[in-house]
Computed example of a mutant assay.
Amino acid sequence: MHPIPEQDNPSYTGSWLICTACGTQFPTDDKQQVKTCFICDDPRQFTPPTGQSFTTLDELCSNHKNTWTPFSGDDDFISIVTKPKVGIGQRAILIKTPKGNVLWDCITLLDDETVENIKGMGGLKAIVISHPHYYSTHADWGRAFNCPVYLAAEDKQWTTQTSPQQVFVTETEMDINIDGEASGVKVLKLGGHFPGSFVTLYNGRLLIADTLLTTPAGLGSWDADALGNARSRPKGMNSFSFMWSIPNFIPLAPDELERMWAIIKKYEFRSTHGAFLKTDIVKTEAEMKQRVLDSMQIQIKYMGYGNHSMLKETAD
């Protein structure tokens, strides 16, 4: 399916079809025109055993609600999650900067309450979406807040519609400027999961979505045993996996990890924040970068590439 141009000043998209598996909106209410979701037909995603089905924004607004959760100890970041779950269930993250608000990633549900809440906090100056699985209703979001929506140029084929708000990023590293001034929000195109997969860095926090997949071992705590005795984290634990397909368990190749590392190693960050609530790792800058490298090297080693050049890399 080719992207459908946005209608002139559309005032109603509530009846447009939305894939229930991934939350992507298609700009039509005609079920004869859209019978399948080409994003879910891609090998990185899947169609559920129950088959392909669609909902609408009107239906979602009638029985769903967005919830708001500030980061622990940092009100400049607010997670927005829809309950009950819609599609993949990812969060969007509102980033507050002195120059204005930036939304990291996008969720499908956009209702009047959400628009009012965000406008009450100053609106949005930009939206950045990590990869096509989270494109959702981004054209509606961009229109509602009259702001640019930054998408990777490499992933343009996965858009279902065109919009004046869309800005396709060709750079590997990009600063988000607001009204001609730097906001401090930096977008890094690491690729991997999709050719244009982004991460975003602001104030020492790295928002990773699915570009780096947070693991249970990354979230685990070994600060004390059952008797309260302090102990160190066991060696050999990873904190992230690097996947071409997450639900279908297809890992990225070592050379791709090496390319991603060449970009991310230049930056310092004290925490990572994944696509879902409770996927936050907060440590020191030195430990976080080491955890990323360790995780890449563990994946490469156990894929059988014991002589790969990445195994000689250091985080210094």
Rank of each mutant, 00 (worst) to 15 (best):
P216L: 02
D294N: 15
A139P: 01
F242H: 03
N238H: 10
V81H: 11
L190E: 08
E154K: 15
T36L: 13
P98V: 11
D76V: 04
N101H: 10
F194R: 00
I39R: 00
I118Q: 10
M303D: 13
G184S: 12
F276L: 10
F242I: 05
A182E: 05
Y134P: 01
I127N: 04
G14D: 02
Q157I: 12
L57E: 09
Q90E: 13
G184Y: 03
K301E: 13
W68H: 15
S72C: 00
S11C: 07
I18L: 11
S183L: 07
V187W: 00
T50L: 13
R259Q: 09
G220E: 11
Q90I: 09
P247C: 00
I300N: 03
P5M: 02
H133F: 02
G180T: 02
V292P: 00
I246G: 04
S309N: 13
C106E: 08
P43S: 06
V81P: 06
G204E: 06
T284Q: 10
T284V: 01
I78D: 02
L190F: 04
L206T: 00
G120L: 10
R143M: 02
S241E: 11
I176V: 13
N238C: 12
S130G: 14
D316Q: 15
A92V: 13
M174K: 07
C106P: 05
Q290N: 06
T214H: 02
L257I: 08
G218F: 03
P254N: 13
P48N: 08
N238T: 07
A21S: 09
T137A: 14
S163E: 03
T67M: 10
M174D: 04
G180S: 05
M174P: 11
V199F: 06
P195G: 00
A286C: 12
D179Q: 11
T159N: 07
F46D: 01
D179S: 14
D294H: 15
T211R: 02
V185P: 01
A286N: 11
D225G: 14
S62K: 06
A209C: 06
L188V: 02
I127F: 08
K119H: 08
Y305V: 02
D316M: 15
P70F: 05
A253L: 05
I80C: 09
D105Q: 12
C61N: 13
G23V: 07
G192C: 00
A230D: 15
A126I: 09
V282S: 08
A152T: 06
V86C: 03
E313V: 11
E116G: 07
F194D: 06
V81Q: 06
H131L: 04
K278D: 14
Y305Q: 11
V149N: 02
N63D: 01
D175C: 08
D74S: 14
H308Q: 15
K301C: 02
T97L: 06
G89S: 06
S72E: 15
A217R: 07
L60Y: 13
V185E: 05
Q297P: 13
G142N: 07
T56E: 12
Q166H: 14
K278E: 15
T214W: 04
F198H: 05
S163Y: 03
V169H: 04
S245T: 01
A153F: 10
F276H: 01
L17M: 14
D225N: 15
K235T: 08
I118S: 08
I107H: 03
V292T: 04
A92K: 01
V282D: 02
L109G: 04
P98D: 10
V185Y: 06
N117Q: 12
P254L: 12
W261F: 05
L109H: 11
